[in-house]
Each structure stands twice: as structure tokens, then as C-alpha cells.
């Protein structure tokens, strides 16, 4: 296993997918969800995966994140071939290199925000006190410095997603995986969250991959990959000066 990526790869490709095929079920009920996908995501960019429901966006995101194995094809994240690694090594790789943001936030309701944010550091074995101090810094960065002691249920949806962003960034991962980050939010909170992505999450040497249906946030992407029926039908750069046009 190679957990230290090649600097050349760091500069260019964050994620490289080649010939990804994934099926679910057996026999007659077997369904091929991903049909030979090739896709690159670059360091320093926000890439959005868009497409109709059931086209395989989430499955592709799971494969990129190393939480799902592809039946065929190669998955390379910052120079590390996840498809060649043992499950335990992939788990460790995720802990060190990937930050997650979920549609329903997935914050633990029985602990406070600082404790929630410190979870990725705790997983890596950082002492609790040190992890919490770092978590408070991140909460301050997302504008919730004075709410660190609140439980997630005491916060609005937008605030909870900001806590989730802080949690995804606390261990300084090189890849951020987001699944419908604005789907549970209203327009105002959705915009606020995306602005945070632009200011806090986006960084040189880090890639942000977002699966979304929300066309209000397309303008925050650097590139958009459009999927349909298990395939990438188009990848294009976003002109930040005007809303992107998508082929449906």
C-alpha cells in the first residue's frame, strides 16, 4: 500500500476513476448501476456530480470514498490505489485523507458540537482535549465559535450543516466527499453553506466532490460532471460569471 502520494499526482489529479463498473443483486434481478466510468477530479477544485435520481451518483461517490468496492475498474485517490488495498487499510486511509458531509448531517445528538467536530481526530487517536481544542477552532472558522457547547438538536439545519463542514475539515483531509449538502436546507442556508465551501473547504491540494440535485449551487462548482444511466455524459468547466447550462 502507498499512503504517501506522489507530489506530481498531488498537483494534478485528486481522484482518478477508470472503467468503474458496479452492479447490485444476483441473477435476473442483477442491476448494473455504473457502466464503465472514467473520471478525474483535480486538486484545488470543487467538482459536482449531477444527474437524475438513480443514475448512480451516490454509488460513484461511495466508490470514490472507499466505502464501496467497484466490481471492475481502478480507483486512485491522491496516488493511492484504493481498489488494490485491503479493507482495513482503506478504512485507515479514509480516516486520514477523507472528510465526509452527509445530506442529513449525521451529527451525534447526545454530544455537543465541539465533541461532534472532534470525532475524526478521535478516530485517528488524537487525545480528546487536543481534539476538542482543534474542533473549537474549526467551529469558529464556520461562524459557530460561541455555540461549541450546544447540542446539534439546539441548532438550525444550516448551523448543523456548518458543524458537519467543520467536522469534515478538522483533520485536514485532502478529499472532501459531500452527499447532497444543501438538500435539507432552505435557499439562504444553502447559499451560506456553499459560501463556506468556497472560503473554508476549497484549498490548493484539496478536492471537494459534491453530489447534488440542487441547481442553485451549481455556480459554486469549478467543474460539473453530469451522469445519466450509470455513465458520465458530460464534464465541463463552470463559467462563474453565468449560471451553468446542463443537458438533461
Amino acid at each position: 500500500m502507498t499512503s504517501n502520494p506522489d507530489p506530481v499526482h498531488l498537483a494534478n489529479h485528486a481522484v482518478r476513476l477508470s472503467g468503474i463498473v458496479k452492479s447490485f443483486g444476483d441473477g435476473n434481478s442483477r442491476l448494473t448501476v455504473l457502466k464503465g466510468i472514467d473520471l478525474d477530479a483535480r486538486s484545488g477544485e470543487i467538482m459536482m456530480l449531477v444527474g437524475p435520481s438513480g443514475c448512480g451518483k451516490t454509488t460513484l461517490l461511495s466508490i470514490m470514498a472507499g466505502t464501496l468496492h467497484a466490481d471492475q475498474g481502478g480507483v486512485e485517490v491522491f496516488g493511492t490505489r484504493l481498489d488494490k488495498m485491503k479493507s482495513a487499510h482503506v478504512t485507515k486511509f479514509r480516516a486520514q485523507n477523507i472528510g465526509f458531509i452527509f445530506q442529513s448531517f449525521n451529527l451525534i445528538p447526545t454530544i455537543n458540537c465541539a465533541e461532534n467536530v472532534s470525532v475524526p481526530l478521535l478516530i485517528q487517536g488524537t487525545p480528546a482535549r487536543k481534539a476538542e481544542a482543534r474542533a473549537k477552532e474549526l467551529l469558529a472558522a464556520v461562524g459557530l465559535g460561541d455555540r461549541w457547547h450546544h447540542r446539534p438538536t439546539q441548532l438550525s439545519g444550516g448551523q448543523q450543516q456548518r458543524v458537519a463542514i467543520a467536522r469534515a475539515l478538522v483533520h485536514e483531509p485532502r478529499l472532501i466527499i459531500c452527499d447532497e449538502p444543501t438538500a435539507s436546507l432552505d435557499a439562504k442556508n444553502g447559499t451560506m453553506v456553499m459560501e463556506l465551501f468556497d472560503t473554508v473547504a476549497k484549498a490548493p491540494g484539496r478536492a471537494v466532490i459534491i453530489v447534488t440535485h440542487d441547481n442553485r449551487i451549481f455556480s459554486h462548482a469549478d467543474r460539473i460532471a453530469q451522469m445519466d444511466d450509470g455513465q458520465i455524459v458530460e464534464v465541463h468547466d463552470v463559467d462563474k460569471s453565468r449560471p451553468p447550462e446542463l443537458h438533461h
Partner: peptide, 18 residues
């Protein structure tokens, strides 16, 4: 009740052993 959160921990890199 916590399976969603435990699943999230698993996705974030917590091993089965942990």
C-alpha cells in the same frame, strides 16, 4: 437508534474493532 451515527463513524474511518 444510533446505527446511522455508527455508520457515519465507520465511513469516517472508525474500524470495526473500534
Amino acid at each position: 437508534e444510533n446505527i446511522k451515527h455508527l455508520g457515519a463513524l465507520k465511513a469516517m474511518g472508525a474500524s470495526n474493532g473500534k
